[in-house]
Simulated assay, not measured.
Amino acid sequence: MEFAKGELVGTGPFKFVELELENFLRLERFDGFFRDGLPYLDGINGFAIPDAATRVAAFRTGQIDAFPIFSTPTKRDADQLKAELKDDVVFPIVPAPGYRGFQFNVSRPPFGPQDDPKARKLRWAVQLALDRDEFNTLVFDGLGHLSTPYFIEWDWIYTEKEWLENFPGLDSTPEVKQKHLAEAREIMQAEGFGPDNMLKTEYVCNYVQRECEVLADQLKRIYIDLDVLVMDFPSLAVRRGNGDFSLIAVSKGMPFPDPDAFNISFFFSQEDGGSLYSGSTNPEWRGLFEQQVGLSSREDRAPFLRDMAKIFYEEAAWIGIIRPSLLQGHRSNWRGYAAPPMHASNYTLESTWLAR
């Protein structure tokens, strides 16, 4: 099958009509779909609109009826559109489960070798010092959620209250954060760093530039001076694959709604098919993972997952900050449309265009 020649085979609710790369895609209803009466729509026209302001204008004028995944509007734009278009549009908030933050290179100084006592202290100081609430407000309009080792809504592993109580650094209430920030500064000072002797290192960043800037500003509070290198994704991927970084931005969505999606995708090395580029390994964590594989009940799995979360968090090779939530705006008159419970569901048309 060659896509470029129009050779497409599928069993979906729509059939291919026309494609112009980096411009538009046109699909029409497949009358032979195996579910009677579906899909509701006669067709779908998709447009490539890379500029955010142009997407907002296209939605405002009715050229497009929905914002595509990963191209959703800011809260400010959504609030303005809602004020103008009122009940004609809705903006459900859809969480984006996964892990988002940055990884240390623990195979070399200053944040490695992995088990070097000084390197571990430096990584832990960063874990303590980050103000996730401030990060959420400045970068994600306050719509994000904590990027915990397992999705924060899986309260059968830890409730949100338990995450905050048992994982130092996650709680951003002022009195708690000031305490953890003071501890982080003490660690850094004990290792020889301070206002007049900053730890200088690079941060390789590709995502929202504001995200990079906020992280750099926060780490200055504990005497770390980041040289932020914003680059395109192919260049970042080369640096990441070669281990050519001290800190590197990493964001990974959850491929399916189960803790093993986190375990395999986020906590396995890239050699094992995961997204852990830091060089970190932990036999204790891997042993617990193997023990919980195959267990079917949440009650049986939860004790293993709780211990695994603590090991991963305290290792602090990949530090989670905030996962965004998306304002998945669309016209309110779509018959049968229901916003997916998680943003990854948008990858299947069945979850969006076919819902009764």
Rank of each mutant, 00 (worst) to 15 (best):
A261E: 10
G336T: 12
F34R: 15
V208N: 15
L199H: 09
E7H: 13
P340R: 04
I44S: 06
W124I: 01
D258C: 02
K75N: 07
R301T: 09
T348C: 10
P324R: 12
P39T: 08
D272I: 00
F289K: 09
F24V: 01
F167R: 13
A83P: 13
F268T: 01
L229V: 14
E160R: 15
V176Y: 03
D244Q: 01
R301W: 00
G273Y: 03
N166G: 08
G274L: 04
G112P: 06
A316I: 05
E162M: 10
E134R: 15
L226R: 08
L25P: 07
G194L: 10
E84M: 06
A129C: 08
Q178C: 00
R298A: 00
D272M: 03
T137P: 03
P68W: 03
L85N: 04
L226Q: 08
G32D: 06
V9F: 14
L41Y: 14
G46F: 01
Y313R: 11
L143I: 04
T72K: 11
S351Q: 12
M1V: 13
N333I: 01
Y150W: 13
E175K: 07
C205R: 04
F256E: 13
P109Q: 03
L219A: 04
F104N: 03
A261S: 15
P50R: 15
P341K: 09
F3K: 14
D133K: 15
P97N: 13
D131C: 05
G6Y: 08
I319L: 15
K82P: 06
L38Q: 10
V9M: 11
Y40M: 06
E2W: 08
D307L: 10
E191T: 10
H343S: 13
I248N: 07
P95V: 00
G43Q: 11
E191R: 14
I224D: 02
A78Q: 04
F47N: 05
V238L: 01
A309K: 07
P259Q: 07
D225C: 06
R301F: 00
